[in-house]
Design a protein around this nucleic acid. Sequence first.
DNA 1: GTCTATGCAAAGAGTTTGCAGATGT
DNA 2: ACATCTGCAAACTCTTTGCATAGAC
Lengths: 135, 135
Amino acid sequence: MATLKYSRQRASIKEYLLNTHEHPTADTVYLHVKEEFPNISLGTVYRNLNLLADMGEAQKITTPVGGDRFDGRTDFHYHVICTCCGNVSDLELSSGHIAEINQLADRHFDGRVDSHSMIFHGLCPECLRNSRKLS
Amino acid sequence: MATLKYSRQRASIKEYLLNTHEHPTADTVYLHVKEEFPNISLGTVYRNLNLLADMGEAQKITTPVGGDRFDGRTDFHYHVICTCCGNVSDLELSSGHIAEINQLADRHFDGRVDSHSMIFHGLCPECLRNSRKLS
DNA sequence: GTCTATGCAAAGAGTTTGCAGATGT
DNA sequence: ACATCTGCAAACTCTTTGCATAGAC
C-alpha cells in the first residue's frame, strides 16, 4: 500500500479549503492555488482533492448543476444552494435530527437505509435580504 | 414560444419510463428505445428526456456517481442507491414528513429553505437478504 | 407550407490517467 | 536510492448543440 508523502501543493490546497467558506469547485481551487504555484496543473488539483476526500480530510459535494464542490469541514453538515446567486452555504442540524431522518426512511423501506446525502435549495441570507427590499 | 409536436420517439421514451422501475440512465433508455427505433440517436434521447423533465412528466435524478437517472413517476418521492449492487429503489415518505424536513432546515438557517433533494444510501431488499444469508 | 423533431457528428464541460521528470523521506 | 508527486497532455465520460433533412399539423 502506498505511503502518503508530503507535498507543498497538497498542503496549500488543504489550507485553502480550511480558510474559505466558498465551497469552491476544483477549478476555483486551481485558480487560487495557481497564485502560489503558477505551474500547478488542474490534474494535480483533482488528484489531491480526491486524496483529501478519500482520507476524510475534505468533503466532496455533488451538486445537480456545474461541477462538484469541495469543503474543508469534515464534520457532517448540510448545504444550501441559493437559487438566486448559486452560492453554497453551510447548514447545521443536530446529529439527533440526522439520525432521525435515516430511521424515518429505514422504517418506510423494505431494504436497509444507512445514510443520506441531502442538499437544500433556497435563498442565502444576502439574497433573502435583497428580495425583501424589492417587495 | 415553441409548440410541442408529437413524436413517436418521445412517446416511446415516455412509455418506457412509465413501465420500468429501473430508474435508467440516458444510455439505458437509448439502448431500450433503439430496439423499436434502430436509428434513434443518443442526442434525441437526451433532448426528449430533458423535455419530459422540464414539462414535469419525468424526473431527473442526480446521483453522486455515474450519469443522471430518469424516473417516469412525477410525484415527489425519494430514492435509495444500493451500496452493494448500485440499483436505485423508490422510497415514499408522507408529504408531512417532507415538509417537516424543510421546516426543520429553515429554522436552522439564516436564509430561507424552500426544498431539498435527498438520496439515501443503503441496501436494496435483495442485497439485504443476501447479506443475511452470509452471516 | 410551415415549424418542430430527428439523426448525425462535432463540440463542450468536467474529470481522470499515462508518462517522464522533479521532489520528499 | 526509492517511492511518491508533479506538470503536461491526451483520453474519457456524460451531455449538449449546429445543421440538413424528415415528419407533424
